[in-house]
């Protein structure tokens, strides 16, 4: 395994490269069209309205799988940029509750790390369209962290 990605992540974290540079290195993030906005210390992920993510053509509505994939990818990027993870964490499990229809428009997501353990991170993700207080989906996931960053607590 090379250190190219690790170096890129470090450059993004240091502010030498825009966060989007990391997203551009991940094929699936590009496939969905994910963007990331930094608001001070906060990271907001965006899934821009894109017809390739449509699930229900009649409504039209976003594909639940695309929204879930967006949330999972957001959590991975969040761990890399904000939590000092140098390697792409592996998803152990991912649980999604669909609360409202995902309309065919821009979708936003924010992540919160509930617990960062030695090997496992528990992350909660919330996605919304109109206002943050009305999420369309909420998710929680466990990620396996690399040995390299195993934190000593």
């Amino acid at each position: 395994m090379t250190d190219a990605l690790k170096i890129l992540i470090q450059q993004c974290r240091n502010g030498d490269l825009p966060y989007q540079a990391l997203i551009e290195r991940v094929p699936y993030a590009n496939f969905l069209g994910i963007e990331v906005i930094a608001q001070g210390e906060e990271l907001v992920f965006v899934l821009p309205k894109n017809e390739t993510n449509v699930g229900n053509p009649t409504l039209p509505a976003l594909h639940g799988g695309a929204v879930a994939g967006f949330m999972e990818q957001s959590a991975v990027i969040f761990l890399l940029l904000h939590m000092g993870e140098p390697r792409v964490p592996k998803t152990i499990d991912f649980t999604v509750d669909y609360l409202r229809a995902g309309h065919y428009k821009d979708t936003y997501a924010q992540c919160r790390v509930t617990r960062l353990g030695r090997r496992v991170a528990n992350v909660q993700i919330s996605a919304w369209q109109t206002r943050q207080s009305e999420p369309i989906t909420i998710a929680r996931a466990h990620f396996l962290l690399s040995e390299e960053t195993a934190r000593v607590e």
Binding site: A4, V26, F94
Partner: peptide
Amino acid sequence: PETQVLHGGAIFA
């Protein structure tokens, strides 16, 4: 991109 493994999100979809 380091391992070329499929994304969990695609498998979820």
